[in-house]
Amino acid sequence: MKNYTFYIFLVLTLSLVSCKKEEAPKPKVIYQETSKAKNEVPEDTTLIEIADLPINMEGTNFLIFPIGTVSSDKKGIKSSYDSNTGYTVSNYGEYQITGYLQNLKFQEIGQDTIYSLTDKNVLIETATYLKNIADKTKKQIMVFTLADLDTNKDNKVNNNDIKSLYLSDVSGKNFTKVSTDFQELIDWNVIDSRNRLYFRAIEDTNKNGAFDKEDKLHYYFVNLLDKEWKATEINPLP
């Protein structure tokens, strides 16, 4: 009886250890040949690309179509973003589009042409219109948080990869990356009085594939009124 009890205990212990191993977070970066990641992602033919109905940000002259994918099986259509509505790939809040989007498409009001934000393989999580900056300076800008590289080498560009920061005009033109490759975006905000966007990012300085307390934080700002956007690093710490 004792041997049987010990056997049960051993099996349960091994099962718990196995579960813990399976639940361990995967690294966000695998450095072997990572520079080639964006060229190695195969197309997933099981997904169906669809567009949500267009959005017009207040005060702008453009329609924005969120583009995402849904999967199809015998049970019907399923969206990875909205489990309640299979054909919905995005959500629109106050001047912000959220979702897991492969692209955004733009159409100037009164024109027939519809064009893409980018031809890159990306996953857009947020697209934010800077309404206050537009009201103050008349310059209409959008900010994007997205993944643009398969940094963890799983043959997908998804929310398990490093998040980056991009800007564009509200027309979708001048789509520009302002964060640094392989630095994970933490957060960003806009100081209207300075016409600046500030953001933080973390660098995997010990190259262990994860972002932790051993790594280095970077602080940047972008002058939104510059003709060409670029990030300037600053050090607010002593």
Results as ranks from 00 to 15, higher is better:
D52Q: 12
I55V: 15
N56E: 15
E58Q: 12
E58L: 07
G59M: 05
G59E: 08
T60H: 06
L63Q: 14
L63W: 12
L63V: 10
I64V: 15
F65A: 07
F65P: 02
G68S: 10
T69V: 11
S72Y: 14
D73M: 12
K75H: 10
I77Q: 09
S79Q: 03
S79R: 02
S80I: 08
Y81P: 01
D82M: 05
S83V: 06
S83N: 08
S83C: 06
N84D: 07
N84L: 14
Y87P: 01
Y87Q: 07
Y92G: 09
E94M: 11
E94D: 14
Y95E: 14
T98R: 02
Y100C: 02
Q102P: 00
Q102W: 05
Q102G: 13
N103A: 08
L104M: 12
L104F: 10
K105Q: 15
F106I: 04
Q107S: 10
Q107R: 15
Q107T: 10
Q107M: 13
Q107L: 06
Q107K: 15
I109W: 10
I109E: 11
G110L: 12
Q111M: 14
D112E: 15
D112N: 14
I114M: 08
Y115E: 10
S116H: 05
T118M: 10
K120G: 09
V122Q: 08
V122A: 07
L123C: 10
L123K: 06
L123F: 07
I124H: 01
I124A: 06
E125G: 05
E125H: 10
T126Q: 05
T126K: 06
A127Q: 04
T128W: 12
T128D: 11
N132E: 15
N132Y: 09
I133G: 00
I133A: 04
I133P: 00
D135M: 11
D135H: 12
D135K: 14
D135V: 07
D135S: 12
K138C: 07
Q140S: 11
I141K: 01
V143G: 00
F144W: 06
F144M: 00
F144K: 00
F144Y: 13
T145C: 04
L146M: 11
A147L: 01
A147M: 07
D148E: 11
L149N: 07
L149E: 10
T151E: 08
N152A: 14
K153C: 02
K153N: 10
D154M: 12
K156N: 13
N158A: 12
N159R: 11
N160V: 04
I162G: 00
K163E: 07
K163Y: 03
L165R: 01
L165Y: 01
L165W: 01
S168E: 07
S168Y: 03
D169T: 08
S171H: 08
G172R: 01
G172E: 01
F175S: 04
F175V: 04
T176P: 02
T176L: 03
K177G: 02
V178R: 00
V178K: 01
T180C: 03
T180I: 05
F182N: 06
E184H: 02
L185Q: 00
I186S: 02
W188Q: 03
V190Q: 05
I191D: 13
D192N: 15
D192K: 09
S193W: 05
S193V: 11
S193D: 13
N195S: 11
R196E: 15
L197S: 02
F199K: 02
F199Q: 00
F199N: 01
